[in-house]
Write a protein that binds this DNA or RNA. Structure first.
Lengths: 346, 346
DNA sequence: TTATGATATTATACTAGTATTACCGTCAAG
DNA sequence: CTTGACGGTAATACTAGTATAATATCATAA
């Protein structure tokens, strides 16, 4: 720690602070030449380039991206992610990260909340770094934030519900409405007649709203009644899922299927069934959402909705970077599609 | 999309690009005054401040953090995370993110791999942004990368194994060695005599190395033999866990317990037992690592090692920011501790 | 031998916010 | 009535890399 006491002090006399100018001086060229070696090496003669690179290497010089980002557009993609890097969001981030990495961009991660003020703050923070583009992982509800984003003129990809809403710029995702509707219809096609719906807190989360709406739509299609007491909101934990199962089965002795808005919840519910010795789907059918790694391995294997989240993240970043690279005619809305994965639990 | 055709074009005649200078002009003060309103509002008279803030608000001006970071130290914390935002790393990131957010810092997330070259690249990328500090979530093995970090003089917190290694600067974490040793001893205390060890790929991952070493140490302590055929490496998936269970029980009909280096694996193994109708721990005892959300809810409840990952992330960021705030005498090594969570599965 | 072009390199100015220094007006003490 | 202090604001210069235009160098062609 003693060695760090001078962290904030200026380097002493001889040691010039490292920069293109210093490297240039050492090699005996102009700073601009060093800069070119860094960002446009093909414009520099091989001999000069070699000398400069050697000096850079020797000095351990890492170019300052802040400075370079001031003249040319910086190579950062800003992203706002919901709280709880949970429930598959992490996979999306992973996808984005991989794509960005590969194409020479960095990712600035700002965590958002589902409240307008927090959204506002997140967006401001991100814009402050003058990113080349934005990826938003949740619907922007705050008008101020929306306005700021529009005014920034930046390319934006939203990973969110793609149904019935004009994207700020581009959107990548699935129709949560359709996924939920499809799953509900699927359950009905299996003969289940009283289907519950369990989700994590819906307020402010447009994807969940759409899923619930899809569930409702399916019930209507089927001529089933929409009963609010067939729906429960719980925290996004296995315990939440177990709790919801208990609640719904106590309310309705004859409930025969439950559709959970997340595999995490469904897995929790399945464990509760095991505890009670209830056969699945004999006593009750369980369906999840997301096709998490565990879903296929679960006992019994979990019927769920597969949305390829990694792919979504990757596509989102890819499309953004394509736009930045000048690719024309990119689709405003990209539907990555989904699948009902029919397994033994329902 | 048409509205965006001018993304890269310069704003037309009248529209000056927004900056402190433009705001200053509109209000009729010097640019410096605007800057002060942004970063040191207390130094500006209330009337001037109000006028400037109004103008900023009205114009939708978001100060450029790149520019401000050039003179004063930028408020970014750089972090390198392992691939697979999986297995609890996400929780750590969440913790870091929360702490940074709260204290006015942004987080730059760079994904690293467990190879020296990739490490090198990640570290360079991060340092390029001239962060105020670094949080490393995996052991830095590349000498070059290490050298760069040291030369940068930045405060660094490593979230990693805290045993038997001098941290680059500070370290927060647990002794993976002790955790694994403790769990192995715990299993032995329950009467299990042939204890397998299953982990995700160990190569290049110091935490896993330490866990394995801890497992070995415990076996030696107990007078059990260290047999390589009691160990398996599998991918970090539930399927991997199931696969490992099959493999080990085929190799050793008399194996009576398996310690998995991750709850994900353990959960997969438990499902495989269900499929085979094997009672847990009657036929075989299962122990995990991490105390993931699902662990307590699993049927049967999973015996595991609790390491509070969110807390680790939070503490790591907190300590880094403390250092940046000038707090003296911060501990070089912070052990966040662990617990053996004794549940029914073993 | 000179003109032409291509290529390589340098000089200058620019990005946008801010530390620093200098300055001005106001008020209280001498 | 002057001096000093102080709160507030302005002017200047600085951060570090890079776009751009200008210049230098050399090879080839007329």
């Amino acid at each position: 720690m003693a060695a760090r006491s001078d962290d904030r002090s200026r380097p002493a006399g001889g040691a010039q602070k490292l920069g293109v100018r210093e490297i240039a001086k050492r090699v005996g060229v102009a700073p601009m030449t060093v800069s070119r070696v860094i960002s446009h090496p093909e414009l520099v003669s091989p001999e000069t380039r070699a000398k400069v690179l050697a000096a850079i290497e020797e000095a351990g010089f890492v170019p300052n991206r802040l400075a370079s980002s001031m003249r040319r557009s910086g190579r950062i993609i800003g992203t706002v992610v919901p709280p709880l890097i949970n429930s598959g969001i992490a996979e999306q981030v992973q996808g984005m990260s991989d794509e960005c990495q590969q194409r020479g961009y960095s990712m600035l991660l700002v965590q958002g909340e589902f409240t307008p003020e927090a959204e506002d703050r997140s967006v401001r923070t991100i814009l402050g770094w003058r990113p080349a583009g934005l990826i938003l992982q949740s619907f922007v509800q705050s008008d101020v934030a929306r306005q700021l984003i529009l005014a920034s003129q930046l390319p934006v990809v939203e990973i969110s519900e793609i149904r019935g809403r004009a994207p700020i710029d581009m959107a990548v995702g699935v129709s949560n409405f359709e996924t939920a509707r499809a799953m509900t219809l699927h359950l009905a096609s299996r003969g289940y007649r009283k289907i519950g719906f369990v989700s994590t807190p819906i307020h402010g989360n447009d994807r969940l709203q759409q899923r619930r709406t899809g569930y409702h739509a399916a019930l209507s299609d089927l001529g089933f009644s929409n009963r609010a007491d067939l729906e429960v909101e719980v925290p996004i934990t296995a315990e939440g899922g177990a709790h919801a199962l208990i609640l719904l089965t106590e309310r309705h002795a004859d409930i025969d299927a439950i559709f959970f808005s997340s595999d995490t919840l469904a897995v929790g519910a399945v464990q509760e069934c095991h505890r009670r010795g209830w056969p699945i789907p004999g006593r009750i059918a369980i369906a999840g959402y997301g096709d998490a790694d565990i879903a296929a391995q679960l006992f019994p294997p979990l019927t769920t909705v597969r949305v390829r989240r990694y792919e979504m993240g990757r596509r989102a970043a890819g499309q953004l970077l394509d736009r930045l690279a000048g690719v024309q005619d990119l689709p405003a809305i990209t539907d990555v599609g989904f699948e009902i994965v029919d397994r033994a639990s329902a």
